[in-house]
Design a protein around this nucleic acid. Structure first.
Lengths: 208, 208
DNA sequence: GAGGCTAGTGACAGCCACTGACAGTTGACA
DNA sequence: TGTCAACTGTCAGTGGCTGTCACTAGCCTC
């Protein structure tokens, strides 16, 4: 952020990002053209593609931050915790500290609306799932290292991470269709679902 | 398949499907244009899009069959089984009986290669995950009905189905990067991973 | 079996995401 | 202040995809 040039670049990118997300959430992702985004910031379409690899890429700018944030949290967990403990505390910690990281680029509220839009837009939802799969791949490697096993011969790291990720996905899904659209809400929902998954798997639902 | 007209249509669609998959697996999905597919069957590009909604759509023609097959298998499970039992037996049954359904359209061997290509092509892999998410949504509704609960208030159906799906995905992943590329192999891998997931979640990995 | 009807098709024009090439402009820095 | 490099705009082109329209070939009736 030193030179004028760098500041200008930063401003252009921020403007493109904000404007794009605003357009996406108001008129919808598919109904927003890259030309419109560029025009709204008064740069050429070509310039847009110099800042973002694709139209999709803008939509995932903030999710990229949260993913990195989460991965870092997992890395920092003490090695004596079990894999599940470590994963659980990582997500919870992430939700506690993510807001300021987001706010540096866009208002948290805009991010939350973007998130809902991603869940509701098929092509973005697909990309979202693929990103999560990639994140899980990395987490699995971290877990494998923690536990001192080889992820290519021992399926357990990937299994644990995938199962955990599945609970997270159900959480996000139900949060995105729910009423309370806040960070607090998803935090609590996450804890609740993580508590329920054990009994749901083994218990007899028809007993009570 | 009555009239000449209908037989002609069927033949055109089959030819497009076969030719497209063949091109995809040999020269890659991204390096195959719709024009080339159309040309290889000697129809116009416009006609291709009358048979398939998109380029992506052709790639998922056979996966669509297997998904439907699996959903049907779940529907047919006796109600006294627990959700996990029912899901497990459904996948295993599906793998036993899917081959003839596939063979009606394309050689099973071509399908297996297509599957590997899907896993290896980012945009197709993303679409694949989204399709699985949709399938899981439907399965969750079936499970909810079996157990007599409301999936919109009780998170357990979606949780169980998501967790089960996660194991399936790890299975597919490891199968697709492995050596033995047969239906038997994925069948056995599925059983093995389903057995390992419980201990992996609760056990102490560093004990043994 | 000659006629009209219509499903299926090709040809064409156009939108949008994205890319490469080239030229112009504007900050950085000596 | 002049030179260089970074940044940008313009333009032309590709590929996926859609709407339109006219034409052909199978179908169906009388």
């Amino acid at each position: 952020m030193e030179t004028l040039r760098e500041r200008k670049k930063q401003r252009t990118r921020d403007a493109l990002l904000r404007s794009a997300l605003e357009l996406f959430v108001t008129r919808g992702y598919e109904h927003t053209t890259v030309d419109e985004i560029a025009e709204s910031v008064d740069v050429s379409q070509r310039t847009f593609f110099r800042y973002f690899a694709s139209k999709e890429d803008v939509a995932f700018f903030v999710p990229r931050l949260t993913e990195a944030h989460y991965i870092e949290a997992v890395r920092r967990r003490p090695p004596e915790e079990t894999p599940l403990e470590a994963l659980r505390r990582s997500v919870m910690d992430s939700w506690d500290t993510i807001e300021e990281a987001i706010e540096r680029y866009v208002p948290v509220e805009l991010f939350l609306r973007t998130y809902k839009m991603i869940e509701a837009t098929p092509v973005l939802f697909a990309a979202h799932l693929r990103r999560q799969a990639e994140t899980e791949e990395e987490i699995a490697r971290i877990v494998a290292e923690r536990e001192g096993v080889d992820p290519d011969t021992d399926p357990r790291p990937r299994l644990v991470v995938a199962v955990f990720g599945a609970v997270i996905r159900v959480t996000e899904r139900n949060w995105s269709v729910g009423e309370d659209f806040s960070v607090t809400a998803i935090r609590e929902l996450t804890a609740s679902y993580l508590d329920q998954v054990g009994p749901a798997l083994t218990g007899n639902w028809r007993a009570g």
